[in-house]
Design a binder for these strands. Structure first.
Length: 218
DNA sequence: CGGGTTTGACCCGCGC
DNA sequence: GCGCGGGTCAAACCCG
């Protein structure tokens, strides 16, 4: 079945998209990522996901060299209705009622908040949020014309973990590439309808967006 | 000198 | 209608 279907598990919604391999492996969509991260525990580990879908080498490198730990769980808020704390998320971005094309989050055990995922990020805000005693940092992709955003905050329940969520899809190749993988980047840049052999951050974002459009009915 | 970070103010949607 | 809360802007500042 090429379509995705929604399930209700323990009061939480989980979406599994048959067209998205990662989703088949419990790459969850949930209204409450924090709860899901705790209760729907048996999710794939980051390395597992990477091995399973052969992501680009640079992701491997980033995971190996820059991260102190690795994501222990995932959530994908493709509904774009709730924020990281499961609160209303329609609050809009900058007051503008923008609907995120797709949001993917990671709960990562790490000493540092900033993880090199191959893209260049510029911090544009920092905010204390009610849902957490910790500050939330806002980053934007520094590539011109790329509106991908990323927010990072420490898990309020376990400060050893970092909650990272991505909004949007990169419309460019990772700046960290040094000439290799041009074909892969071209594939990732175009053909959003075709499932590529290798999964990149952008691919995941695009998949989330696709799941979003098929699930919701705006 | 250029790019990134900091910081407070501001904007806007939502709930009451 | 008002207050709250999250998200963003933008100028000043910092650093390589």
């Amino acid at each position: 079945m090429a379509a995705s279907l929604g399930l209700a598990i323990g009061g939480h919604e989980a979406y599994y998209s048959a067209s998205h391999p990662a989703a088949l492996y419990n790459f969850q969509t949930t209204a409450d990522p924090l709860v899901a991260a705790d209760t729907a525990a048996p999710l794939l580990t980051f390395p597992q996901l990477l091995d399973e879908y052969s992501p680009p080498p640079r992701v491997h490198a980033a995971a190996g060299s820059q991260m102190n730990g690795f994501p222990s769980s995932y959530y994908c808020n493709s509904a774009g209705v709730y924020d990281d704390a499961g609160r209303r998320g329609g609050g809009g971005i900058g007051g503008v009622n923008r609907r995120p094309a797709g949001r993917i989050g990671f709960r990562t055990r790490s000493e540092v908040e900033v993880m090199d995922d191959g893209f260049r990020w510029r911090k544009y805000g920092k905010k204390a949020v009610k849902s957490s005693p910790n500050l939330r940092n806002y980053y934007r992709c520094s590539a011109d014309g790329c509106g991908v955003k990323k927010r990072v905050e420490r898990d309020r329940d376990d400060p050893r973990y970092v909650l990272t969520s991505y909004d949007g899809v990169h419309n460019h190749a990772t700046p960290g590439s040094h000439g290799h993988g041009a074909s892969r980047e071209a594939a990732a840049y175009s053909a959003p309808a075709v499932v590529p052999d290798t999964w990149t951050w952008s691919d995941l974002h695009a998949a989330a967006a696709a799941a979003h459009s098929s699930e919701s009915s705006y």
